[in-house]
Design a protein around this nucleic acid. Sequence first.
DNA 1: AGTTATATGATTGAGGTCAATCATATAGAT
DNA 2: ATCTATATGATTGACCTCAATCATATAACT
Lengths: 259, 259
Amino acid sequence: MRVPQHIVDLRREELRRLIRRDGFLPVNEICKRLQVSEATARRDLAAVEANGHITRTYGGALADYNSAFASHDERSGRARPAKTRIAEKAVAQVPRTGTIFLDAGTTIQAAARALAHRRGLTRLVVVTNSLAAASVLGSTPGVELHVVGGEFLNRQAALMGPRAIKALGEWSFDAAFLGGEGMDAAGISNSHASVAAFQKSVLRHAQRVYFCLDASKLGKATPHRVAAWSQLTALISDTPPPRLAAHGISLPPAKLLRA
Amino acid sequence: MRVPQHIVDLRREELRRLIRRDGFLPVNEICKRLQVSEATARRDLAAVEANGHITRTYGGALADYNSAFASHDERSGRARPAKTRIAEKAVAQVPRTGTIFLDAGTTIQAAARALAHRRGLTRLVVVTNSLAAASVLGSTPGVELHVVGGEFLNRQAALMGPRAIKALGEWSFDAAFLGGEGMDAAGISNSHASVAAFQKSVLRHAQRVYFCLDASKLGKATPHRVAAWSQLTALISDTPPPRLAAHGISLPPAKLLRA
DNA sequence: AGTTATATGATTGAGGTCAATCATATAGAT
DNA sequence: ATCTATATGATTGACCTCAATCATATAACT
């Protein structure tokens, strides 16, 4: 018995939202909530997982944003994705002590996860506007965690806005680690105005600035400029210099940390 | 082959920490991380779950703090615990529009969960210092969510400290919903000085003040005073008036919302 | 109106998870 | 030194989850 495609899409969107809200849902609960059979629930889960945002577990599904647990690829022992390699490279730049800033975004969340696994931290102060990064680092020994307040933006799972920018004014960072949505000859950019405004503010308070972007962001010129290349201490990326050069990005070797 | 009891305890503490940090761990991953058999991992999970802080799922375990999913008792369809009833009573006091504050703590987290399920909210502004409450409410339609920044305190999973108190200064709340660790004839108290300081500050910015405490907090006089009974709009509790009276707490009917 | 595509629920067998049970080795108690 | 308690890993059978397959009904297409 076929159901209209737009009804299927709405149901799957509702599924994604339920998992996102509740953190974890078992399959039988999904059947109840969506009034579908187990077989349909499983197919819907497969479809939603393929689009990202949830992780399948045995018997249910987990909200990605609420979980630091490794993705399916990572669990399967496949080659670590670019984000994980970039994250590890970023964490290698983190001082054992001092004050750092962590941005929102999935690459920085991977960095938070890597940092949480690190041994030997001694009184590292971490400041973030990402709830996901905060969740991961909240119980890490040697880390004193601060969150800048602000308005919660759902899509980024981060705190932004004028209050967040104002809160930054109280800080000075030894190093800041940020993400972006695009990089081209002009520099780093983002698609959301208040994200870009916030990131620009972070740059003003940081001694060293690292941007972490994978190859998928290359050549994208999203509308809001965040940083020119001269403003970065280094770009941490999986993209080789020739490909960067093809997009007009020419960085001295010390300014590109290859992951 | 028996292992010293203190080694068992350390292993279980490590298990709790791993789950808390990663959000979700499957049993086979626990076996790898702790170097134990599946049978031991399952026994350890049972023990840690019994102490609270994690929720068993099929094939693994979930960090409670990262999950809004119902507890085992709730999933089992048993009588809803006091916390859930108190949470629902608290949510009934929430206006459809306006600005409210939500505290940290498990009862308020239950209220956040209940609020997330509510229909018909229209531009309710929610301000919180709890990462757990923020996670739950982040994608609720009709809710504009703000987090007050501050230093993250792990045990409470909340943001506290002078920066948090300062951030509160920018707000005025129609209603505030808070928890406590003790209630006696003198009022509401807490065991942690910075939590109490923060809560007192919240009271100064709120029109109506609701405290949500279950019977287990009755008679406990934890060291830091938060509020006298006169400062409350109402106490939301499962405790009947005679038991409150036995501890010197005498509230007019309008000041006690029984759950 | 007729044809094709596909979403659905039911069924099935394979595979995974689970707690109980047991033998063993060692911690803990005497 | 001896005895008791219990944590451990292996095993087992029950139970649960899973994807594939199929028949059906309807959406989508012509």
